[in-house]
């Protein structure tokens, strides 16, 4: 067989085929959503769509329940991310910087919520919140989301701090900087991109979270829950697809940026 002269090995045909099938399998359903956001049919889908229209975008924009759900989701994601940035950074600093009894256990327990199925986290939180007689509200949703957002930020920051080493901190102190000055001038600039990446990932995770939200929400519906409720009422079905595109845009962009940022700093 003749190899390409550019030096790189081309993948054998079965492998290339496998890769393409996997990619199609992952992304064709998303393409279907994109397509049927513009179909002229109202309730049922047929392929190919009988016609294309931009009408549904206008209809979506006119629906107040959509705007309420979007606003709630953005607020929840924003506040959960902020809480995660503060708590995750503090936890990472404690684990990476100091030696204390049970440090490994603490590190493991911090990562556990990410591995735990959302349904378990959801039930646990619901029981705990009911036991405490706390009414389900905006804040209970934020608390639920913060459980996994903290982990994402913690994970990013702790990895950066471990690589960063302690001697720069010592150098800063040696040159007369106290703890706060050392954080501001030396630690923060070095972990800023990890914070940004972790924060964006946390935001994206929170924004499309369904399982934990169903357990911790009261009457409110976040955008994903609103979409889910729309499926049982097939009126204006393409509207759901338009909203799905909005969700894709809002979550996809931060994830791409976060990926870029971690990629750059790894070089």
């Amino acid at each position: 067989m003749k190899k390409s002269s550019t030096g790189g090995n081309t993948a054998p045909l079965p492998v290339a085929l496998g890769a393409w099938i996997a990619l199609l399998f992952l992304h064709v359903p998303v393409l279907i959503i994109l397509l049927y956001a513009f179909t002229t049919e109202e309730a049922t889908y047929s392929f190919p769509p009988p016609g294309l229209t931009l009408r549904w975008i206008g209809i979506t924009m006119g629906r107040t329940d959509f705007w309420q759900a979007l606003q709630l989701s953005l607020r929840v994601a924003g506040i959960a991310t902020l809480a995660a940035l503060v708590l995750g950074t503090l936890a990472a600093a404690a684990v990476a910087r100091s030696r204390f009894f049970g440090k490994e256990a603490v590190s493991f327990l911090l990562l556990l919520p990410l591995a735990l199925p959302g349904i378990v986290t959801g039930i646990a939180l619901r029981s705990a919140i009911s036991l405490g007689n706390i009414p389900f509200s905006f804040w209970t949703i934020v608390i639920g989301h913060a459980t996994f957002c903290v982990v994402v930020v913690y994970n990013n920051v702790v990895a950066r701090l471990r690589r960063f080493g302690n001697s720069q901190v010592e150098a800063s102190m040696d040159l007369g900087a106290n703890g706060w000055q050392t954080f501001r001038y030396v630690i923060f600039p070095n972990i800023a991109s990890a914070l940004l990446a972790g924060g964006m990932l946390a935001f994206a995770l929170s924004f499309d979270e369904v399982i934990v939200t169903t357990f911790t929400a009261g009457q409110q519906s976040t955008l994903p829950i609103w979409i889910f409720s729309q499926l049982v009422r097939p009126r204006d079905r393409p509207v759901t697809n338009v909203v799905a595109i909005v969700v894709i845009l809002i979550t996809f962009i931060p994830i791409v940026i976060a990926h870029r940022l971690t990629q750059e700093s790894n070089e």
Binding site: E170, A171, D174, L175, G176, Y185, N190
Partner: peptide
Amino acid sequence: PPYERSVNTVFQDYALFPH
């Protein structure tokens, strides 16, 4: 603490601030 002593250190790994 180190920041209240009139000594300065040259570190083995230099510990320069990379940013």
